[in-house]
Design a binder for these strands. Structure first.
Length: 606
DNA sequence: ATAGGGTTAG
């Protein structure tokens, strides 16, 4: 509890005129120094209170430097003494800017961001002028609360006081707008900075990363490297690695890994885990596994990442193996681990194992299943063709199913040709107003396959009337450390015509090996020939052609897609891997496909 | 005089 009683030795009892004068004034200064040293050495609130009493007794608290130092020591200590600091603060007749700054910082350190902002407000009310030390901390409070209104007002105050050129204030503003998701403001401040520090780059990259603006992250990282203002800081590289993971920028990720190794002797678990994730999600399961095995300290999340990685690459059995090793090592699986291992089961069609684990999680580990767990289970059952069971699970869940769950059921219905359940799933999706155009297209396509043309057209009209446009499919491919993006039917890289020439040549060879275009998934009202043309322009094929032209013979090709792969691209890529003798790795929305010698690691289960 | 910005993994 608060120890306000000590404050009853109020310093007003010892007015300055009663203090020893002249010769002893020097003594007093010395005493003050001594006590301030003592105060700083305190290791607990109890100790602090005792020294505080002495300071009050000697009247040293009258000196504002002394009282400010004492207050700062208390408010910023790590022995959790904000309450006591408050009571000291309240006793101050005229708290200075420094005292307010101290208290605001104390609140922020204690995660009490509301009080930090209230106190800043008090400060203005009492006409104590904030300074360049006030703003970084107040803005941090706004950032953590993501309150942009307050943040903008405070930005106004910064201008009024002429503090807009202070680097610390600018960095804090970038961060505040970033956390409030106003990226334009962050960029505007960043651009007009004359001097940038490492923290400025860190803040602006983090702002883009939090909005999943991965291209911008990498571009900024490049700018930073070019301007030479950089050291391999974990805090920056962790966001860069995240961008590499999302964009499949394997080589750049490897460079980032290299500079981390050069500059930092021991990488912490978080960085190691994000490196591992980068390798795994850029298609190199081997490198990810290697890092995992060399990690000295592993926690639940490191295990989860490698388990889900094995799952994504189709190694369900190995995922289960690592899972049991984790349990043997005495690390208790948490809800995240279960998401990884259940999804690994789902990708490999390990239905019984998945069901067992789900029960174990609920009844042995007492983990309440979340939406993600139910999602895995619906996926597991649905993909295995147990559609009725999947539907029953959705209906009997204690929480209301979200769009992801219904979508997973819908896609299972599509794979297993169950129009009746598919309609139910789609109805629920439309009711949830998640406005995903592909949901409409999937259902429409199912109607078309059942030759219910009228229904098919009705759904398409519904989609168009709601102003939904199909998400363009794209594929990313890295060539010579640069990531290239291909959109379906893309003509922009193809000025020379090389890519389409290549596509033409490839198709000729593929047909020779027995390839027949599979137009069943082209969701367009056009004739067969046009459908065949559309298929040729699928982004994955463009990316493969581009990579075949621009990379050396026999080297592996890695592709990242935003959507799932269509059947045609799947069988096409299998043949390309055989004819051109290339290993091709494709990460689609769902999982990895490793194409080699005409086969795919998913064994056509996806 | 006393203090400060960015700080991470599925």
């Amino acid at each position: 509890m608060m120890g306000t009683s000590v404050l009853n030795y109020n310093h007003h009892l010892l007015p300055s005129k009663d203090l020893p004068q002249s010769s002893s004034e020097l003594n007093l200064k010395q005493k003050e120094q001594e006590y301030l040293c003592l105060v700083k050495k305190c290791k607990s609130l109890e100790e602090f209170k005792q020294v505080h009493v002495q300071i009050l007794k000697f009247g040293l608290f009258l000196d504002s430097f002394c009282s400010s130092s004492v207050l700062a020591t208390c408010a910023l200590s790590d022995w959790n003494s904000m309450d006591y600091a408050c009571s000291i603060f309240q006793q101050l007749d005229e708290p200075t800017t420094f005292d307010f700054n101290t208290m605001i910082r104390g609140y922020v350190n204690n995660m009490n961001f509301e009080n930090a902002i209230y106190l800043y407000n008090d400060m203005l009310q009492r006409e104590v002028e904030p300074d360049n030390f006030t703003y970084p901390v107040v803005l941090k409070a706004c950032a953590r609360l993501a309150v942009i209104q307050e943040g903008m007002q405070i930005h106004g105050h910064v201008f009024k006081l002429g503090l807009e050129d202070d680097v610390y204030v600018q960095n804090s503003l970038i961060n505040m707008y970033g956390k409030c998701r106003d990226i334009e403001m962050s960029c505007a401040i960043f651009r007009r900075m004359e001097q940038k520090s490492v923290a400025s780059w860190s803040a602006i990259i983090a702002a883009h990363a939090s909005l999943a603006m991965w291209w911008e992250c990498l571009a900024l990282f490049e700018d930073m490297s070019r301007e030479g203002c950089w050291r391999a800081e974990e805090s920056i590289l962790v966001n860069v690695l995240s961008a590499c993971t999302h964009l499949g920028a394997f080589h750049l990720g490897r460079c980032a890994h290299g500079s981390l190794l050069k500059n930092i002797t021991e990488l912490n678990v978080a960085v190691m885990t994000s490196l591992m994730d980068m390798y795994v999600k850029c298609g190199s399961l081997q490198k990810g596994l290697c890092l995992f095995q060399n990690m000295t300290r592993k926690n639940q999340l490191s295990y989860s990442v490698i388990i889900s990685g094995l799952g994504l690459h189709g190694y369900g059995r190995q995922a289960l193996q690592i899972f049991s090793e984790m349990v043997e090592e005495g690390l208790e699986p948490d809800d995240v681990t279960y998401v990884s291992v259940l999804s690994a089961c789902s990708h490999s069609g390990l239905v019984d194992e998945g069901l067992d684990l789900f029960d174990k999680m609920k009844f042995e580990y007492r983990i309440e299943p979340t939406m993600q767990h139910y999602g895995c289970m619906v996926d597991l059952k649905g993909r295995a063709g147990l559609l009725e069971e999947a539907f029953q699970l959705v209906q009997s869940m204690p929480i209301k199913a979200n769009d992801v769950l219904w979508r997973s059921l819908l896609s299972a219905c599509k794979v297993h040709d169950n129009l009746k359940l598919g309609e139910i799933a789609a109805e629920n999706l439309f009711r949830l107003s998640s406005h995903n155009p592909s949901d409409y297209l999937v259902l429409s396509n199912m109607y078309a396959r059942a030759q219910q043309w009228e229904n098919a057209a009705k759904i398409r009209t519904k989609m168009i009337n709601r102003g939904l446009i199909q998400t363009p499919g794209y594929s990313l491919v890295e060539v010579k450390s640069k990531v290239y993006k291909f959109v379906s039917q893309d003509k922009s890289y193809c000025k020379s015509g090389n890519i389409y020439k290549m596509i033409h040549q490839m198709e000729w060879q593929l047909r020779f090996e027995g390839y027949m275009p599979d137009t069943s998934q082209v969701m367009l009202d056009v004739d067969e020939e046009e459908k065949g043309e559309r298929l040729k322009g699928h982004s994955q094929k463009l990316a493969i052609a581009f990579a075949l032209i621009h990379t050396s013979q026999g080297s592996a090709i890695r592709i990242i897609r935003n959507l799932r792969m269509c059947n045609d691209c799947h069988s096409y890529t299998k043949l390309v891997s055989m004819i051109y003798e290339r290993e091709i790795t494709v990460r689609d929305r769902n999982r990895f496909h490793h194409f080699k010698d005409g086969n795919c690691s998913c064994r056509d289960y996806w």
